[in-house]
Amino acid sequence: MRTNPALIAMLAAGLAVSACSKKPPAQLPPDPGGAVSTETPTASTGPTPGSQADFVATLMGQDTILFDTDQYNIDSADQAALAAQAQWLAKYPAKRATVEGHADERGTREYNLALGERRANAAKNYLVSLGVDAARIATVSYGKERPVALGSDEGSWARNRRAVTVTID
């Protein structure tokens, strides 16, 4: 009887692979999607009242105001957004906020930091004029360092010329 070396190699490989197969565990972990909870569900289905998520959800995009090129003036659309922010802040008098000033990529770093600061201060001053205590609002300028739109076109630049209000927990 003659043995075929290729046949022996295939049989050895098959045995090696079958010896490495995993055995199923004795107890399977619970299914994350279909787990049955014995806890009573909470009534809250939205964001926690007074949180940053609540601020963003309530204002529906009015946490950000936009500016024209090299400008920091508050126009009528900005006034409406800031009025909505002031109403939310009046509802939660213990909350503090930071107004972040931003600029587009054009211009020097120093110029854009100064412009971002003027934008943040303009938004803060308007909020204060609406009755929000100035001590509750801080400002910071990021200049061109934190763009929301990457691109070197007017559409991207327009989205990056902004002031964003962020609540502090």
Rank of each mutant, 00 (worst) to 15 (best):
V17E: 11
P30I: 07
Q62H: 14
A135G: 07
A90R: 10
A94T: 14
P47M: 03
Y142I: 00
Q27N: 15
T45Y: 02
I8P: 01
G50Q: 00
L66K: 09
A138H: 06
C20I: 06
S51F: 09
M60Q: 13
S141T: 09
L113G: 00
D153W: 12
E39P: 03
Q79D: 00
T42R: 12
E105H: 03
A9F: 09
N112L: 10
K124P: 06
A134L: 00
N4K: 14
E39C: 12
K124F: 05
A103D: 10
A122K: 02
A94Y: 04
M10L: 11
A12F: 15
T58W: 10
M10F: 14
P47G: 10
S152L: 13
M1D: 11
A135I: 02
V132E: 03
N160E: 07
I74P: 02
E39I: 02
L82M: 10
G14H: 10
I8M: 12
L89C: 05
N121P: 04
G131P: 05
P147D: 04
R119F: 06
N121V: 15
I137K: 01
R136E: 07
A80G: 11
N112Y: 01
I137E: 07
E100P: 00
A90Y: 03
E154F: 03
V140C: 00
I74M: 05
A16N: 06
G46F: 00
R106T: 11
Y142H: 02
A158S: 15
G34P: 04
G46L: 09
T139E: 10
K144G: 13
W88C: 05
T98E: 09
R159S: 15
V17F: 11
G107P: 03
E145K: 09
L150H: 02
I74N: 08
A43M: 15
G151V: 00
G34Q: 12
G116M: 10
A26K: 09
A77Q: 13
E145L: 14
A103H: 04
Y126I: 08
W157M: 14
G131C: 01
A123T: 13
G34D: 08
D133K: 03
D153F: 14
K95M: 14
A83I: 07
T69C: 04
V36R: 08
T45L: 11
A13K: 09
S44P: 06
Y92G: 06
A122I: 01
W88E: 04
Y72V: 00
T38I: 10
A9L: 11
S129H: 05
A81Y: 01
L82W: 08
V128D: 00
T64N: 03
N112D: 07
G61L: 02
L82Y: 05
L150Q: 12
R161W: 07
F67Y: 12
R2D: 14
D78K: 04
V132S: 01
D63T: 10
I8L: 11
I168N: 13
A53G: 11
Q87F: 04
T38V: 14
P32K: 04
A12V: 15
V132F: 01
T69R: 12
S152E: 07
